[in-house]
Nucleic acid binder design. Sequence first.
DNA 1: CTGTATCCGTGTTGATACTG
DNA 2: CAGTATCAACACGGATACAG
Lengths: 240, 240
Amino acid sequence: MKLEKITFGGEPAWKRLYDDACGTAHALDLAGERWALLVIRELLLGPKRFSDLKADLPGISANVLTQRLEGLEQVGVLVRRRLPPPASAWVYELTPWGYESEPIFQALGRWATRSPLHDPTLPISPVSVLLSFRTMLDPSRAAGLEALIALRLGRESYELRLAGGRLEVERGPGQGADLSLAGEARTVAGLVYGGLIAEDLEAAGALRVDGDRGLLARFVTLFPLPPKATPSAGLPRDGG
Amino acid sequence: MKLEKITFGGEPAWKRLYDDACGTAHALDLAGERWALLVIRELLLGPKRFSDLKADLPGISANVLTQRLEGLEQVGVLVRRRLPPPASAWVYELTPWGYESEPIFQALGRWATRSPLHDPTLPISPVSVLLSFRTMLDPSRAAGLEALIALRLGRESYELRLAGGRLEVERGPGQGADLSLAGEARTVAGLVYGGLIAEDLEAAGALRVDGDRGLLARFVTLFPLPPKATPSAGLPRDGG
DNA sequence: CTGTATCCGTGTTGATACTG
DNA sequence: CAGTATCAACACGGATACAG
């Protein structure tokens, strides 16, 4: 490993780099620091502001978020842009190449889902839920299905377009949707992945359903999880 | 993010965990620490001993390697095994689920190869080169090709079997190979990815070629690199 | 020979408080 | 809202000493 000096615009910065031509090592040089990949994940469905990122990454501190955004901008993964008036806010947006990192998240997610230690009851961000749908959709189960579904997860709204066995996800109000779900991201995740029952969640006030309930019944079957890996592996190693 | 206490066998250990049900976050909880993914990479083509890992991961220190191996064993990615006599050495071997992490490395590698900052002239491990071949093989370019190629990269020997547009990689001496290459891993990487010329490398004593040179000429064309992302992105952000 | 444990200097990370 | 400043805790990496 090597210490490399990189000077960009302002003051010199030192970074610990793997001294390795392997693509994996370079990817980790670019985005291997703590939180970096999760910042990218949160931007995969469109630009966000600093405070949105901070809210959607519970546990990150402001200074670390600042550092990650600066680093990821320097290496060309994202850009910092000012929205046109009247918004006039700064937003962070992935570059085209940044958006191309999505397969990394699909591979990581698919693999980790099989971990014996994975706890699906933890909090989850809206973007994570939507990306997981894109990753886990089983085209054969979605065959012949054409529908527009509106998801309101916390403060964020998305539109899911199912057609030709494929799924498109976009930010948007989802007007005229065949089915509309509103609730916290973890509620919808529990509905699709955790076997929770929509009627129970509605009764508990955690979910609102509008529209085609037959479509809902089918929707929750479209995203089968891979089986867990053998859990024998999560145990302590024998003494010596 | 949360501090979780995990006690395994011996003394209590604290680990910083993302408090996030997202698969990506869990994958990073499992293997997101510095060096962890590179340790896994080095094991993807078969078990290795501590000292082999240390040699193939230049820059890692013994104590960090020990910690990573312990951590990855605890979460079920690898196991520590004793070879049968007369070898009687300890080796580290991925579990079946650990081996299934390879798509992560393919996604990371494919993405990072397009980085404007990627430097392919850095040192590289034999395993990285072999994995890159598996990732980058263009099946259409390999169509109709049937061959056994032996690669001796540093101390390690591998066999590449090309058939039906597919590539199989195994450790092994490669006896009876149609083509045999011997040299440092970075030399062979430069040959396939860097446009270096086999004859020059032979003349310089960096490469030994035995067997079908027509096959070699074709072999070096089988692994096209994706184009670089627009490099404008690697520049300093404007002042304000 | 193959790891493992400990010490230590340094750099990174994160919680809190604070500023424009 | 969008970050900076400060400081404490921790992780990293190098060296060295130790154990089977």
